[in-house]
Computed example of a mutant assay.
Amino acid sequence: MRVLGSYAWVYLTSGSGWFQEAGRPRRRVRAGDLLLLFPEIPHAYGPDAGGRWDEIHAVFDGPVFDLWRARGLLVPEQPVRSLRPIRRWFLRFASVLAPALSPLERVVRLQEVLAQALASADRSRGPSRDTAWAARARALLEENPGSELYLSEVARALGMSEETFRKRFVRATGVSPWRYRLTRRTEIACRWLHEGGLSNKEIAARLGFSDEFHFSRCFKRITGRSPTQFRALVDRG
């Protein structure tokens, strides 16, 4: 099986074949199916023996797609989506690869088309059990961002051990429960820094960090900048 360091999508426009990820059974795929490939997840796919298929594909990465994954928009447990009519979706995916696009335009177009594809596929299939579980887990992790949270309590609320919860959450979202909660707290901090009115020390206290230094270290781990640097960017903007 192959392992990518990036995300990729493969849209089948004709033919049929198979798709498989490590630890999961091989499944049938056919024209009109979108295959979503995730970083670090071993996978393999191909047309039926003696047959062929036609496809359009692209490799992509970036923090925005990591956030989509953490938010449950890109779900590793749902790697195959059905998109029809084929001609319409082929043209949409082909528009992402248009040579005339600038790098920025291509990224924006990719996000637009991929968001449309995920929304369309979700409407046709309805929420899965795994998607509902991940949504419940994320909601529990987002509760009371300024209070101390014990993963054992979240796991118990979901009816499983802490270790089972941690592993399943990583499989579903691509990030650990701890990092997911820290990212949500950082998003709140970014909003407060943008709005102004609160010092770094006050934000640290409201979000449950032990002190301003701890807050700054965690904030930089997620954003790449300290709160003071982020505030300076906001002021200049």
Rank of each mutant, 00 (worst) to 15 (best):
V175S: 00
Y150F: 14
E153L: 06
G146V: 10
R156M: 11
R179N: 13
L149I: 09
V154T: 10
E162M: 13
S152Y: 04
R181Y: 10
W178Y: 09
G174R: 01
T183M: 13
K167L: 13
V170Y: 08
A172E: 05
E153T: 08
W178F: 10
F169Q: 00
S161T: 15
G159D: 10
A172C: 09
Y150K: 13
G174I: 01
T164Q: 08
R156L: 14
P145K: 10
A157T: 05
G146L: 13
R166E: 14
S161V: 02
R168M: 07
E163K: 14
E143L: 14
R181S: 08
E163P: 00
G174E: 07
R179D: 11
V154C: 04
L151K: 05
G174Y: 01
A155C: 10
R171K: 05
S161W: 07
G159C: 06
E153V: 08
E153Q: 12
R181C: 06
G159K: 02
N144H: 11
T183D: 04
F165Q: 05
E143G: 00
R156P: 01
E148H: 08
T164N: 08
E162K: 15
R166Y: 14
E163V: 15
N144S: 15
L182A: 03
R156G: 12
E148Q: 10
G159Q: 11
V170F: 14
L158V: 03
L151C: 04
R156T: 03
V154M: 02
L158N: 03
L182E: 13
E163Q: 15
R168G: 01
E142T: 12
E142H: 05
Y180S: 01
